[in-house]
Amino acid sequence: MKNIIIFLLIFSSTLFSAGYQVPNNSVNSVALSTAYIANANGADSAYYNPANMVYNENNHEVELDATYVSLAQINYKSTDGVYDIKSKPHTAILPAFHYTSNKLSDNGIRVGFSMVTPYGLTREWENQPAISSAKKFELQTIELNPSLAIPINDKFSIGLGIRYLIAKGNVILDPATALYVDMKGDDEAFAYNIALSYKYSKELSLSATYRSDIMLNIEGDANVIIAGPSYSTGASLKVAIPDNLILASAYTFNDTTTIEATFDMTFWSKVTETNFEYNDATAEAIFGRTTPKKWHDTYAYRFGLTHKYNNILTLMGGIAYSTNAADEQYVSFSSPESDSMTYSIGTKYKINDSFKLGFAALYSENKSRSVTNTTVKGKLSDKSVYTLTAGASYKF
């Protein structure tokens, strides 16, 4: 199992939205711009709202998804006109798996399991001034999330989950001809998630989900050049994964059309610094540093529409606005934060009573941003993300 997970980490080098959060890990979530909490149903409810598993049909269901991600080149133009450079474009394929059980007891207890890519960051530059502080910044994660759903009564249910996060990181800095560092490491950690669902009526559903924070300490080795031949030293980098709270409501008209609105808050204010440490005293003196990174909490406002066109075809669409985590003085080449708008569409096609296929597309456009601080003195623009998702679900 560990070998499979490591393969998936290598396979799923990824991107970030706000901070380095990746919220889209199923056909439904992509198609609805992640306005998919109160109306979460089927196998992927195990991840997006495990409390809703008690309202699924009384059978087992599995879903397998693959998301192709294209991260466009970011353009940087310095204010003084000296630099006009672009980051390297990146593509990735993100796998996801979801499972929900049938009723395991008379009162309707269910279990679920998800394997997702919840966080990631890939940013790579090839030219000065970016390569001095961010020639390459890469964070890859895989999360295993078993969950339990307990019905309290006919209208109210609670979901509980354990999160096991495995992470790999790679940082390359190239500040000068005689200075260079290439650091690689990994870590793993546990956290938890909680979900609440309330069926106010047949039409109206209210939900809340919470995921706890995680502090990763990416430990490994660094190849270092300091005015001479390269050598290896132990190194580490602390990475904060903040907690996340989502409040959601969904209303269904005529048993065919569901509108969902969600308010998403991620507590990035817990990210207070970037801390590199090296075992070698010389490397620590030159490259080791604790840099203030006083980010603030981010908010996302998401709206999704699901329409059952007929018994076979379901149509979906979504829109979202997300704020960024960094004030101007903390914007960097590794994390060029800005507000974003997201647009998405998708469909699900019922092959038979057991088998469904789904497809979704999403486009996220980040605003251009002019920045003046110690590392960035210019305009960052053309930051956009395209995703295409295909998935299949099966009931048995």
Rank of each mutant, 00 (worst) to 15 (best):
K2L: 13
N3L: 08
F7L: 06
F7P: 07
L8N: 05
L15P: 05
S17P: 06
N24Q: 15
S26G: 15
S29F: 02
A31H: 04
A31N: 06
T34K: 12
T34Y: 10
I37F: 12
N39G: 06
N41C: 09
S45E: 08
N49W: 02
P50K: 03
N56D: 07
L64E: 00
T67V: 03
V69C: 11
A72T: 10
Y76C: 05
D80V: 02
I85T: 08
K86V: 11
H90M: 15
P95A: 04
F97S: 05
F97W: 04
H98Y: 06
N102V: 04
K103M: 06
S105V: 03
G108L: 10
V111A: 07
M115F: 10
V116Y: 04
T122Q: 09
W125T: 00
E126D: 14
N127E: 15
N127P: 09
I131G: 04
K135G: 00
E138C: 07
E138D: 10
L139A: 06
Q140T: 11
T141C: 12
T141K: 07
T141R: 09
I142E: 07
L144A: 12
N145T: 14
P146A: 06
I150F: 03
D154W: 06
D154S: 15
F156S: 05
I162S: 13
I162K: 14
A178Y: 14
L179E: 13
L179Y: 15
G185Y: 01
D186C: 04
D186A: 06
E188N: 11
I194D: 08
S197A: 15
S201A: 02
S205C: 13
A208F: 11
R211W: 11
I214Y: 05
I214N: 11
M215E: 12
N217K: 13
E219K: 12
I225Q: 14
I226W: 09
S230P: 06
Y231L: 09
G234V: 07
V239S: 03
N244W: 12
N254C: 09
T258I: 02
T258S: 07
T258L: 01
T262R: 03
F263S: 05
F263M: 11
V271Q: 01
E273W: 08
N275T: 04
N275C: 00
E277G: 09
I286Y: 15
I286W: 12
T290S: 11
H296R: 14
Y301E: 02
Y301M: 01
Y309A: 00
N311Q: 12
I319D: 04
S322C: 01
T323S: 07
E328P: 13
Q329P: 06
Y330T: 01
S332I: 09
F333E: 02
S335Q: 13
P336W: 08
Y343I: 07
S344P: 05
I351L: 11
N352F: 07
N352W: 00
D353G: 01
F355H: 00
F355C: 01
G358R: 05
A361R: 03
L362P: 08
Y363K: 10
S370E: 08
V376H: 02
K379Q: 13
L380C: 09
L380H: 09
K383Y: 13
T389Y: 04
A390M: 14
A392F: 14
S393N: 07
